[in-house]
């Protein structure tokens, strides 16, 4: 292996590592705040990429309808749950937020999609369509079970994953899509070609990670999330609503998932079921980070990216095997030296 190959593989691993890092960090966040191992994280990547692809093609993406449907379900659930204290005004408020806004968004998309407004407005529209799915999914699937065991939440997460993959097939079809790149420019650095798109991916990832850090350290909402992560009961005792931290965690996770989708969609072909394997690699990184430490998870994600691209070079037939095998020594090490602590909640 010569220096050129080494550098090219390094560049490749940095790009995929960046995406895995974003997913790993949000997975750690969601797990520590809500105790949900959020398997469907990858679906937000797919939805983000495919929604943008549909908008670029001038079509109304299925996610616009999905948002309306999911919003309606959430509204019905919210009203049933509050049926004892439901007033007319409250019902109207729920309806406006959960059904009215998605309906408005649907109208906007119907108007905007055929106009092909260009990459940036389409990206914003994509985020507006995909991100609200995060908190809505939390309200429908996880909030009623917020106090259930980790295992139950995991099973629900698997169910949500299957549902979202199936809907992805219905909305986007079986074939893959690629979105146009943020920039087609290619810089030549000696013997290496570096595409502007890959620089964009790495800087966006760095900016998002820095943003998350500042969010957790400097803002009240971020501190609420940290408090809920340390102890749900303690957080409630000091007046932090764990429902709200749940929404917040899922909103962030959907946002970061969708942004990852926007970035990766131009680098590779995305299928309705691509998200799972991407999310799973983020999950491997999160496990390597002990499902606890953000910096460790991010570093582990870079490791996963590196292992992946070097094994695809030297033993392509065993690539996935190698990537998923690195989880075993870590699990062994953890089970011997750091026995699991049962959460007393």
């Amino acid at each position: 292996m010569d220096a050129t190959t080494l550098l090219l593989l390094g560049q490749d691993s940095l790009i995929s590592g960046a995406i895995y890092a974003l997913l790993a960090v949000t997975m750690v966040m969601v797990f520590s705040v809500t105790r949900v191992l959020f398997i469907p994280q990858g679906e937000f990547v797919t939805y983000g990429a495919l929604t943008l692809a549909a908008l670029e093609a001038g079509r109304v993406p299925g996610t616009a309808w999905l948002l309306l449907g999911v919003g309606a379900v959430a509204a019905v659930l919210a009203m049933t749950r509050a049926r004892q204290t439901l007033t007319f005004l409250k019902a109207i408020r729920i309806l406006i937020i959960d059904v009215g806004l998605p309906a408005l968004l649907l109208l906007i998309v119907h108007w905007a999609a055929p106009l092909k407004l260009g990459l940036v407005p389409e990206m914003l529209l994509t985020l507006a369509l995909v991100v609200p799915l995060g908190p809505l999914v939390y309200r429908i699937a996880f909030q009623p079970l917020a106090e259930a065991s980790i295992l139950v939440l995991l099973i629900v997460a698997v169910g949500v994953h299957m549902g979202m993959t199936g809907l992805g097939l219905v909305f986007f079809g079986p074939e893959g899509y690629q979105t146009s790149a943020f920039s087609d420019a290619v810089f030549e650095l000696g013997f290496m070609n570096i595409s502007a798109q890959s620089i964009w991916v790495v800087t966006t990832t760095a900016a998002l990670l820095l943003g998350l850090y500042l969010f957790f350290e400097k803002t009240v909402s971020g501190k609420m999330l940290r408090a809920a992560a340390i102890s749900r009961r303690g957080a409630r005792l000091v007046g932090i609503s764990t429902d709200r931290t749940g929404y917040l965690a899922f909103t962030l996770t959907a946002l970061i998932g969708a942004v990852s989708g926007l970035m990766i969609g131009s680098l590779t072909t995305i299928y309705y079921d691509s998200g799972f394997i991407i999310g799973l690699k983020g999950f491997v990184a999160a496990i390597l980070g002990g499902l606890h430490s953000y910096p460790l998870a991010a570093a582990a994600a870079l490791l996963v990216g590196t292992v992946e691209s070097f094994s695809s070079y030297s033993a392509s037939a065993f690539k996935e095997v190698i990537v998923f095998t690195i989880i075993i020594p870590v699990l062994l090490w953890r089970s011997i030296f750091r026995p699991p602590v049962e959460h007393l909640e």
Binding site: T5, L8, L9, D12, I15, S16, I264, L267, T268, Y271, D273, S274, F276, I277, I278, E308, S309, F310, S311, S312, Y313, S314, S316, A317, K319, E320
Partner: peptide
């Protein structure tokens, strides 16, 4: 002879080897 899977997001490694 190189292989990859349907859902792979990158084949840079394999392609580098082929080009070489």
């Amino acid at each position: 002879k190189e292989s990859y899977t349907r859902n792979d997001t990158s084949v840079s490694g394999q392609v580098l080897k082929i080009v070489a």
